[in-house]
Design a protein around this nucleic acid. Sequence first.
DNA 1: CATGAATGAGAGTTCATTCAT
DNA 2: GATGAATGAACTCTCATTCAT
Lengths: 194, 194, 194, 194
Amino acid sequence: MGEKSIQKKEYIVDKARDVFARKGFRAVTMKDVVEECDISRGGLYLYFNSTRELFEAVLEKEADKQDETVTQELKEAKTASDVMAVFLKEQKKELLRKKDSLAIATYEFYFESQGPKKDNRIKKQFDDEVKVLEYTIKGGVENGEFNADDPKAMARSIAMVLEGMRITACSMGITEEMINSQFLMIMKNLIKEG
Amino acid sequence: MGEKSIQKKEYIVDKARDVFARKGFRAVTMKDVVEECDISRGGLYLYFNSTRELFEAVLEKEADKQDETVTQELKEAKTASDVMAVFLKEQKKELLRKKDSLAIATYEFYFESQGPKKDNRIKKQFDDEVKVLEYTIKGGVENGEFNADDPKAMARSIAMVLEGMRITACSMGITEEMINSQFLMIMKNLIKEG
Amino acid sequence: MGEKSIQKKEYIVDKARDVFARKGFRAVTMKDVVEECDISRGGLYLYFNSTRELFEAVLEKEADKQDETVTQELKEAKTASDVMAVFLKEQKKELLRKKDSLAIATYEFYFESQGPKKDNRIKKQFDDEVKVLEYTIKGGVENGEFNADDPKAMARSIAMVLEGMRITACSMGITEEMINSQFLMIMKNLIKEG
Amino acid sequence: MGEKSIQKKEYIVDKARDVFARKGFRAVTMKDVVEECDISRGGLYLYFNSTRELFEAVLEKEADKQDETVTQELKEAKTASDVMAVFLKEQKKELLRKKDSLAIATYEFYFESQGPKKDNRIKKQFDDEVKVLEYTIKGGVENGEFNADDPKAMARSIAMVLEGMRITACSMGITEEMINSQFLMIMKNLIKEG
DNA sequence: CATGAATGAGAGTTCATTCAT
DNA sequence: GATGAATGAACTCTCATTCAT
């Protein structure tokens, strides 16, 4: 597959992402993607053999994208609170562009693959998130910024709230005010005297 | 519709619930339901014209069921902590019978209906939950059991964690230990000195 | 499947037989059969899920048909020569209605299934034919009508000639004169003084 | 077409022969051949425009090959029996390398072309075979080696047996012992006192 | 000459939905 | 009410064939 093909593959993945964000995972047909990309039926099959394959590529690209953004911003954070703030800001941005959310699609995808538990990317992502949070909280506790008996449980709790907000954003919508209020609670909770 | 027909309708709804719990919403076909119920294709159509109608009936029945259980148990709760404990116990039970969870199906269902925002039952249910929690927390604050600056935000936060746990249970699985740890945090948070 | 469905299934098998006789096995699509039967695409799938299944049904019916005809005629045969004559007459009839021959289709079918050697009906049919011939020849030898050192080899040889004629009839055509000449040789060979 | 192109064409024909022997005629796609040859899709079309064209080339080459071998061996045969023996030995060799047999493919090919009766190579080949046999038998009869009332019918009969064995080899398999037994019958029949 | 991406026709298959019984 | 055969639309997927490079 030459240089050009790689670009086309990228193009298809991007277009497909839109479709998945709009319709979820299961409702998407190869035909939908073909139409979104404005290519031929057979043409799509040169690159992907199923919506499953396509979605895996979308998730992969998504993961790469996030890494880039966050890594960059975190370089400039000085304190644990800074890191937390950057992290939450990023999450907020994500939550608000509801139109673009892959949350439902991702849940559908992994719900469907539950038989052969595969590489469950969703779990990995959740665990990573917990790890980052735990690490940050521990740092904050050490230098007196934060206050937490059980950093791991706290990290998990925050991750759960985020998970809840993601799915909520997709299914019933979520307002910026609501996000702010939730994030405030999280921060207060971390800083509060034990 | 006679007595017998009503019974049959109930029967279909129950069977359909199993199918939705197993496969989600979108993956379910009328054929699936027909096979699960072991009735004729045409027979099903006498009662329901689409999986959408079916799922609505399932949700309705579900709501009724929960009301019954909870109402009963809450009658016997004396303090706000009791109420909270009963509530969380109920949630835990729900979270652990993952096989029977309608969570994914429900999200799919409402995600799909997002165009004509309908009577979004999911939102109503979430709001109800928040209201109950808020009411309970306020009561607890008043009689000195709990400690919360912003009961509404606290209620929402708890509801979000629960939402997160529900979807997590479906997509990546959740352990009892994890549930306990989360619930402990919630209770500590409510009781903690401000 | 009710009475009517059985009739329809029979109808489909008959129509399909025509298609297989005309086009062989591999060239036949479900669409061809649908058109021949003048039913809907989905309708055909109620009865058969593949051309393979269809062809198996065709072969089955074919075997039944032959049994009937031959059994009847053989009842009236008195001597071994009579039996042989009846048998060859039947074969001749078969060979001449070239348009209706399933020979090529059958070879294609079994060639394709050679992996999991299955119940190779073609072999069974050939072996049956040999057995009948052998039995008849032996009988003829015993009562002095025929003359054969090795009845089994003779039977096989005749069966081979017939197989050759069948395939020849399909691929290059065969004349009645040619059939007569071949059958004459066979009979002379059986009767000839050793 | 340059020297190099001719070589490439030969190469393609050889590879295609393998495919046809393996899959028959109709099941073979241009894609199969492209993959077997490890050339480009477009590349194949520079030489052949369809599987039909390809198979014709395969048959042509096949005919040339046989002529060479047999001609050479027959030069050294002295008596009619020798000729017959050489011929049958050659046939036996052919029958046993079942994996390489083009028999089914050839029948499929000509069955499909039955509309525009073309140059039916299969008939020509059969007729040639009969002619050679007839010529040999006549020779044998003249010098007293063989005994045959109707050499032409005898020749045809032998050709039919061979045809039967070819198709049998492909569809149900054939053992060396069976071939020997058949050939023995043929020879005995030729030599037998009338 | 050679390549291989791209197209589009067509086959296979599944179901929602209807309707005669 | 209930049945299940029948229909047809919609999808998936595979290739023959073309064409720009």
